[in-house]
Computed example of a mutant assay.
Amino acid sequence: MTDAEWATVRPLLPVPAWLRGRGGQPEAYCHRVMLDAIRYLVDNGIKWRGMPVDFPPWDRVYAFFRRWRDHGLVKEFHDRLRGQVRETLGRDAAPTAGVIDSQSVKADAVVATDSRGFDGGKLINGRKRHVVVDTLGLLLGVIVTAADTGDRIAAQELLGKVADMHHRLELVWADGGYTGSLVAHCLTTLALVLAIVKRSDDMRGFVVLPKRWIVERFFAHLMRTRRLVRDFERRTASAEAMVYWSMTLLMTRRLARPHLGRG
């Protein structure tokens, strides 16, 4: 991180338990160097054991990653950054609308058969990332499943979690793969309108559909961080954490700009 990024990030970091009088020992390495190490791994797609000597030992960095993953600290950090970005752009920190979609990616050999599957539509053997983003393309929630998991099945769980976390959320756009009973479920159970954006039958070739491009741009960002080009994580919880870490890269860079724009 640049000094400008660190100045933005530091006030948003979760406070360690030992600083809150809840026990534990002070950490041996400062948060800035640990964040830099994890962000380097996510951005460049290296192995944990391939951590450059400029950073702390790889096992200490992994222990930090694991602690933040298991205690929800990476999500807490990510959500604070998202709220800051939204407010800087003149939006309310709590979103009222979003877009849902999924992305199938190939899984590395370390991914066990119980958490991978074959997506017949995309012809991909691996995992599937189900995400909800706001209208700025910022992540609201993610779950990772085997690639053969149906979009509507995963969406029911994901939208339930997102609705619990974002009480002002009223509208979510989706493609034709989310039609059926899910629309009624969202309205009656979650008080959420699921609006289906369909492609017209007379359309030919590539067409930009309203609101759909927002989530596609989000997936394009994930593909720019090499650790996410494939799924290399043994646990789906780690795969979800990597998505959050990837988005922190994007948001800290945006917040560090002298004049924050939409790009």
Rank of each mutant, 00 (worst) to 15 (best):
Ile46Trp: 09
Pro14Lys: 01
Ala7Ile: 01
Met251Leu: 08
Cys30Pro: 03
Gly263Ala: 09
Gly261Glu: 05
Ala237Glu: 15
Ala7Lys: 14
Leu123Val: 05
Arg227Cys: 06
Val132Gln: 07
Ala37Leu: 06
Asp3Glu: 15
His71Tyr: 10
Asp101Ile: 10
Arg226Cys: 07
Ser102Arg: 07
Asp202Pro: 01
Thr252Cys: 15
Arg22Trp: 11
Gly177Val: 08
Val105Thr: 12
Pro57Gly: 04
Arg227Asn: 00
Arg80Asn: 02
Pro26Asn: 07
Leu140Arg: 05
Ala191Glu: 14
Val197Asn: 06
Arg227Lys: 12
Arg224Tyr: 02
Gly261Ala: 03
Ala4Pro: 02
Arg20Met: 12
Pro26Trp: 04
Gln156Tyr: 00
Leu81Phe: 03
Arg262Ala: 06
Asp148Gln: 06
Glu5Trp: 05
Ala191Ile: 00
Asp148Trp: 01
Leu222Ser: 01
Phe65Met: 07
Ala7Glu: 14
Pro95Thr: 10
Val197Trp: 08
Val172Trp: 08
Thr2Tyr: 02
Leu190Met: 02
Ala37Ser: 10
Ala7Ser: 13
Gly261His: 06
Ser246Met: 02
Asp175Ile: 06
Phe77Asn: 02
Val207Ala: 09
Met203Lys: 03
Leu228Asn: 07
Leu139Lys: 03
Glu216Gly: 06
Ala94Asp: 14
Trp6Val: 04
Ile214Thr: 12
Gly263Trp: 11
Ala7Pro: 01
Arg235Phe: 15
Gln156Cys: 12
Gly205Phe: 09
Phe118Ala: 04
Leu35Tyr: 11
Gly24His: 02
Arg234Asp: 03
Thr252Leu: 14
Ala195Pro: 00
Leu73Trp: 14
Gly83Arg: 11
Glu240Ser: 12
Gly23Ala: 01
Met247Lys: 01
His185Met: 09
Glu5Ser: 09
Ala63Arg: 13
Thr189Ala: 15
Pro11Ala: 05
Tyr62Met: 07
Pro16Ser: 06
Ala4Asp: 13
Phe55Leu: 03
Asp54Cys: 10
Asp92Ala: 14
Leu228Trp: 10
Pro26Gly: 03
Ile100Gln: 06
Val142Glu: 03
Val53Gly: 00
Leu140Trp: 03
Asn44Ala: 04
His130Phe: 07
Pro52Asn: 05
Pro16Tyr: 02
Pro16Phe: 03
Asp3Ser: 11
Arg217Ile: 01
Glu240Tyr: 00
His78Lys: 01
Leu249Arg: 13
Gln25Pro: 00
Leu192Thr: 06
Leu12Tyr: 11
Val144Gly: 05
Arg129Lys: 10
Ile46Gln: 00
Asp70Val: 12
Arg227Gln: 11
Thr236Gln: 09
Glu5His: 04
Arg116Asn: 08
Ala195Val: 12
Phe206His: 13
Thr188Met: 05
Arg224His: 15
Asn125Thr: 11
Ala155Glu: 08
Gly263Asp: 10
Ala237Met: 02
Arg129Gly: 10
Pro11Ile: 10
Trp68Ser: 06
Leu158Phe: 08
Val183Lys: 10
Leu194Tyr: 07
Arg235Gln: 13
